[in-house]
């Protein structure tokens, strides 16, 4: 089963150049049933990444461009009066897709944002007292523009931890940039991608991740990291218990992708920046720099 992920990653790396680790993290997030927040300046390939993943996984993908006048109903759908039947009929919004790309989420009003975030958390939508389940697998990739522009609503810090991971894509390196400039359009490349992993297989994988074994030693390490963030004066605010669970889940998924049946400390270290960076709320945007003290000071068990 894990071999599939390798092929998938290989294919993705053909499209998005020089970002192997980020793609890996994104896939890991998907397998761990989490949602992904990509925070970067426009044009580095956030949308391309989302589209590539959707294509490779054979998921139906819907992009929601968030704007300042978008309303919750624009996202989740609305009940519209059907004149023919004289009843209200629910028209599902773009959220009813297996993969949702919420672009520039910080342009929307807090009301619209929280509609999305609540749906992500609950995995279903309640409209007019009726609950509609979201499809499975359900995966949200949100992008956020870090530069504070007038009229944006950056996601409140307390809402950030609805996302399992936050990654930055960054500029491609010299060689990748060259290939990018030389090669054909990404768009057509994505169109030509085959489906490497069916949604059913993906669900199987997600189930398999929960069976990954976590030894006491790894739990010790995980707890040591959590209490370090709570006690150290380097962080304003330590990791919450939910963050601890997220860290462990992500590490399990990482171990699964590494074709192991048990988590080792390296798995935690690999996902730490992506999982913990945005939850430590240090004002700094560089996740790697935020978690560096943890990696340097917390001894592995």
């Amino acid at each position: 089963m894990q071999n599939d992920t390798h092929h998938l990653l290989d294919a993705a790396n053909q499209v998005i150049l020089g970002k192997a680790h980020k793609i890996r993290l994104a896939l890991c997030c998907l397998i761990a049933r989490g949602h992904l927040l990509i925070e970067d300046i426009p044009g580095v390939g956030k949308t391309t990444l989302a589209n590539t993943l959707a294509k490779l996984l054979g998921l139906n993908c819907q992009r929601i461009q968030f704007t300042s006048d978008i309303l919750p109903a624009d996202i989740i759908g609305a009940s519209v009066f059907d004149a023919k039947n004289l009843t209200f009929k629910f028209h599902p919004g773009p959220l009813f897709n297996q993969m949702v790309l919420a672009d520039e989420i910080n342009r929307a009003t807090p009301k619209a944002q929280s509609a999305l975030l609540e749906a992500m958390e609950e995995q279903n939508i309640t409209v007019d007292g009726k609950t509609y389940p979201l499809p499975s697998p359900f995966f949200v990739i949100a992008t956020q523009n870090p530069s504070y522009q007038i009229g944006t609503f950056p996601l409140p810090e307390s809402q950030l931890d609805r996302f399992l991971m936050r990654i930055e894509l960054g500029y491609p390196d010299h060689d990748a940039e060259r290939l990018l400039l030389k090669g054909q359009s990404r768009h057509s490349l994505i169109e030509s991608l085959p489906v490497m992993l069916t949604p059913e297989r993906l669900i199987n994988m997600q189930d398999a991740v929960t069976d990954i074994y976590v030894s006491n030693a790894v739990l010790d390490y995980c707890q040591a990291i959590i209490s370090f963030t709570r006690e150290s004066s380097e962080y304003h605010c330590g990791l919450s218990p939910r963050a601890g669970l997220a860290l462990l889940n992500a590490a399990k998924a990482w171990a699964f992708m590494e074709q192991r049946d048990a988590v080792i400390p390296e798995d935690i270290q690999a996902v730490l920046a992506a999982v913990a960076g945005h939850r430590l709320r240090s004002g700094n945007n560089d996740s790697a720099a935020i978690v560096a003290p943890i990696l340097a000071k917390v001894a592995v068990h």
């Binding site: 080792i264 270290q269 990696l295």
Partner: peptide, 8 residues
Amino acid sequence: GPCEGAKD
């Protein structure tokens, strides 16, 4: 190092 995993 004390913070280095076995595999690394």
